[in-house]
């Protein structure tokens, strides 16, 4: 799955390289900047990956955590080992978070590499119109990866909880991914404005605040608090469900 995520920036870079001209204001944000500066490949890939590809892969990993072991039957052997149920949940969740870190870093690093390979690299224009050096820009992209990882942490906790509900990993994965889509759909409906700050996907695109000058940390903080809330609630739900669950698979 990491390879599939790495393919996103590569695909974007190759397509842009092969096409004659990208008109500004069309397609994903930053797409039109790539020919001038390869560093925008990673940013574009992140914009493309956030609504679907990242939730998809993280949903697969998080939905598989417990249900996958149950489906294979290995869950009973882990518990008899004994792994301890809380420890198993914590380790599984940390595994999902490590995947989130790897997934976002893969997009940034693969994007930076292919961008440097196919396009010129130089000082980067931030959203505010200010220009920063390539090194600082790469640092900001790593910050973006950190932001997106945090964004996905609460979502991964939701997936962990769903994964404790069933022995069918595919069902847990599908339900988790569907929730990610539903959250984004709800977030786009102005009639539900009261709900928006509570949706785990609400701050997903605000990683752009790290590309402003000066950097706005408000969304990072608000996002971290929200995701921590999701982790607390769904972590507790997963514990409540799994600690007393009869493992019959």
């Amino acid at each position: 799955m990491l390879a599939a995520l790495a393919a996103i920036p590569v695909l974007i870079a190759v397509v842009v390289r092969l096409s004659a001209h990208v008109p500004p204001g069309r397609g994903p944000v930053f797409l039109d900047r790539i020919t001038q500066n390869g560093m925008f490949v990673a940013a574009t890939a992140m914009v493309v990956a956030i609504p679907l590809f990242l939730p998809l892969t993280v949903g697969v990993v998080a939905g598989d955590t417990v249900a996958g072991e149950a489906g294979m039957g290995t869950l009973r052997y882990l518990l008899v080992a004994p792994a301890g149920r809380i420890r198993l949940l914590v380790v599984k969740y940390l595994g999902a978070v490590v995947f989130c870190v790897a997934a976002t870093l893969v997009i940034v690093l693969a994007g930076s590499a292919i961008g440097a390979l196919l396009f010129p690299v130089g000082p980067v224009t931030l959203l505010s119109g200010d220009t920063v050096g390539a090194g600082q820009a790469e640092w900001r992209l790593v910050l973006v990866a950190a932001y997106v990882t945090v964004s996905l942490a609460g979502f991964a906790a939701v997936g962990l909880f769903i994964s404790t509900l069933t022995d069918a990993p595919v069902g847990a994965m599908a339900a988790t991914v569907v929730l990610a889509i539903a959250s984004q759909v709800l977030d786009s409906l102005p009639q539900l404005a009261w709900l928006h700050p509570w949706l785990f996907s609400h701050y997903w695109f605000d990683f752009a605040d790290l590309l402003r000058q000066p950097v706005t940390w408000d969304s990072f903080g608000a996002n971290a608090v929200l995701q921590a809330g999701y982790l607390a609630v769904f972590g507790a739900l997963a514990y409540g469900r799994f600690a007393s669950k009869d493992v019959l698979s």
């Binding site: 204001g25 994903p28 944000v29 914009v47 609504p51 977030d187 786009s188 102005p190 695109f205």
Partner: peptide
């Protein structure tokens, strides 16, 4: 009526 956000990028034009 508020225009739904498109998700990818700001409303333009």
């Amino acid at each position: 009526p508020q225009l739904p956000k498109t998700g990818l990028g700001a409303t333009a034009g």
